[in-house]
Write a protein that binds this DNA or RNA. Structure first.
Lengths: 248, 248
DNA sequence: CGGGAAATTGATGACTTTCAAGGTGTGTGG
DNA sequence: CCACACACCTTGAAAGTCATCAATTTCCCG
């Protein structure tokens, strides 16, 4: 019996932060019970978004910080030529909204790629709490650091790795993510389309398709629609750290 | 008479934050005089680094946040295969050290690429001030946001643009940077080697060399060693927003 | 001033994109 | 509930971009 993330709890009712299964990876982590009580009062837990609906758009005024409860959000940035880059897929337990910290306006778009439940804490409250609660400040710093170091790794991947290495790294990252949340690390569902994934990985859709086919032929993974089975984990790791990378 | 950044003020004596020419782009920005007095007491202004010396290394415990006063710092990340990606060039007025926010350990290396003067504020003091001074918190958020949105733009560049577009974007960014600090936007010195720049831009050194040569032939820029003259600004902008970008 | 690093240039080939076509799944409206 | 339209995905062939290898040239540090 393989644990899989819930496919659709879109109709579920909000629970307290303390009871929330994502407690340990979300803002409440590191807050005392008493602190958490305060924070909780200021969280809007009832944001429901249908697939393809927008959470926020670039240039939009920042309303607050969002946490993904279920579903998935895609963030992406575009330039004036319409070139678009998918920045991140935010899965349950991930936060988003930090991109507006520079100017108060968002720099990227955030769109639900599945029916999604979000929690939201307003910036005003957030800031006030950061001033008053050391644990909140610590958590802010931690979360922002996660985003920064993730982006750094993504830069390394896009700047220095081959396409197949990039996919391998991505699959391993997703595998770890699911494992750390109590789901199977060998079998999981891709929450995004090939379009979105290929863009995220900085390659053409066709290239992504060819790579998945090749990995299947080699028995490293099996892939059926959006379902991924990692069959040869060591080999996938080897690919991710391929020695075929460009030399400096 | 073209304004140029000072080549070497390595021997200069520390000045007060209020008198510092980088005041408005650094942490003191947004702090009241009174707040600034407090912050200033906790800043170490006498860090001198010779070229090639390290500010911090990946896995190293975070000591604090650094501000570049003069010179330049290169941050880079490496994976287990020795693949390396230059993340950013930190010029006077830029802050660094946020990469350790996730775990308290740095995720990247920071190395001086010129003789460099740094200011440093310890994390403890920084955190304490963030709790007490709203302006400090605001500045933290602002600076971290700058880093995040910069990384996002870099991802867009590496993921979606051609090599020549990436160089054009970089030159324009550098041009803006110098202009905003009162220096010439048309003539400036590259603070980094071709190696470092090509790595930053995710291309081979030879590719970078070919592109600069081509831009020179086309009269868009003139380049002599590390000195860059932008001769046809509009054309460079056109290149940066080239319509030759990949389609989604 | 000399030796080695840094930068440029040329030739070749690999990797990836683009264009094109066909297959498969999905959602909606009748 | 089915059918059709459409979006998504895969595969093939050709072209292009960029990396690699190699050879110079230039520059910089000791």
């Amino acid at each position: 019996m393989i644990m899989q993330p819930p496919k659709n709890n879109f109709a579920q009712k909000p629970v307290s932060c303390e009871a929330c299964s994502l407690h340990s990876v979300c803002i409440p982590n590191g807050l005392s019970s008493k602190e958490l009580d305060e924070v909780e009062k200021s969280i809007d837990k009832s944001i429901k978004l249908k697939k393809k609906k927008s959470v926020f758009k670039a240039k939009g005024i920042q309303q607050g910080i969002y946490a993904v409860k279920s579903g998935a959000i895609k963030t992406s940035i575009s330039n004036s030529d319409g070139q678009e880059q998918v920045l991140e897929f935010h899965l349950p337990g991930d936060l988003l909204g930090f991109d507006a910290f520079d100017t108060g306006e968002h720099t990227c778009d955030a769109i639900a790629i599945e029916d999604t439940l979000l929690c939201k804490i307003s910036m005003d409250v957030f800031d006030e709490l950061c001033g008053r609660l050391p644990g909140m400040r610590k958590e802010l710093i931690h979360q922002v650091g996660k985003e920064i170091s993730h982006n750094q790794n993504q830069l390394l991947s896009l700047g220095q790795q081959q396409t197949d290495e990039r996919l391998a790294v991505f699959l391993l990252k997703l595998s770890n993510h699911y494992q750390s949340r109590g789901f199977s690390s060998k079998e999981f569902l891709l929450p995004m389309s090939r379009q979105d994934l290929s863009n995220y990985l900085g390659m053409a859709v066709e290239t992504l398709s060819r790579i998945t086919s090749r990995l299947s032929e080699n028995g490293i993974i099996k892939i059926d629609k959006r379902m991924v089975f990692i069959q040869d984990y060591p080999q996938l790791e080897k690919l991710a750290h391929s020695s075929c990378g460009k030399k400096t």
